[in-house]
Write a protein that binds this DNA or RNA. Structure first.
Lengths: 134, 134
DNA sequence: CGGGATCCGCACGGATACTG
DNA sequence: CAGTATCCGTGCGGATCCCG
């Protein structure tokens, strides 16, 4: 199976020079937060509480169902959200933050707070930089 | 310069369907932090203080010079780091955190702290999830 | 309604070569 | 030493179709 072989080779190569990076647990968490939608899902659930799949899709307008599902699966796997299936006539699925997810959301929210507080500074720095470059 | 045109086109396109998202300043900041290397550069500069290009390249071992340069340019543009060129025999370039960059780093570090504190929980949740799936 | 499976474009990022 | 320019593979993410 050449497909697996190629994938395995990549992982092997990664492990070779990433050994010291892999040791750091924060690295994996940062990668997880890099998933663009993770922070938004966390924020949405923190604001609204329990939400259904379609509610999340609407709240994060712009996300594809593939990405939303993928994000929710990852969060569920990491124990940050719960997924509750209720076998009603059309299936109902509720998502909610776990205590662990809630605690992470508090930290992530601090980043949001920083952004809202300093975005003007960043914006003016950006303008100044662009002015010099032109 | 077609390079700039391409970049501008992307921003234009984004603004078209992201209008309501673009309103939120935290969105742009989150995207910036998604750049995988941003947090690492911030952390490195916070730990070591002033660093030269080659020092950063070694500290973040695994990053390509393309990504490192790109990341540093973005951080400089946003006023988070300073770039100082000293015209010695071989050119010397020093990078350092601005007060703004330092304040952001404090927040980002909290995420790192959370990760180190809860990574065990995440890991066990992950194992449990995988065990169910198998 | 809440997804899984599949196809596919293209932009993201690595490798290489060259410059001041 | 500290980049810039170029080429190129691939994996991320959107679109579409289908299922329970």
């Amino acid at each position: 199976m050449p497909t697996m072989t190629a994938a395995q080779q990549r992982e092997q190569a990664k492990l070779a020079y990433d050994s010291f990076l892999a040791e750091c647990p924060s690295r994996q968490l940062l990668d997880r937060l890099s998933d663009k939608w993770v922070a938004l899902v966390l924020a949405a659930l923190a604001d609204e509480g329990t939400m259904r799949y379609s509610q999340l899709a609407r709240r994060l307008a712009g996300v594809s169902q593939k990405m939303l599902t993928q994000t929710l699966r990852a969060l569920e796997r990491d124990g940050l959200v719960t997924r509750t299936v209720t076998p009603t006539v059309p299936v109902t699925v509720d998502y909610d933050l776990t205590p662990l997810g809630a605690s992470l959301q508090v930290v992530v929210r601090q980043v949001k707070v920083w952004a809202e507080a300093h975005m003007d500074d960043v914006r003016s720095a950006r303008d100044a930089y662009d002015a010099r470059g032109a």
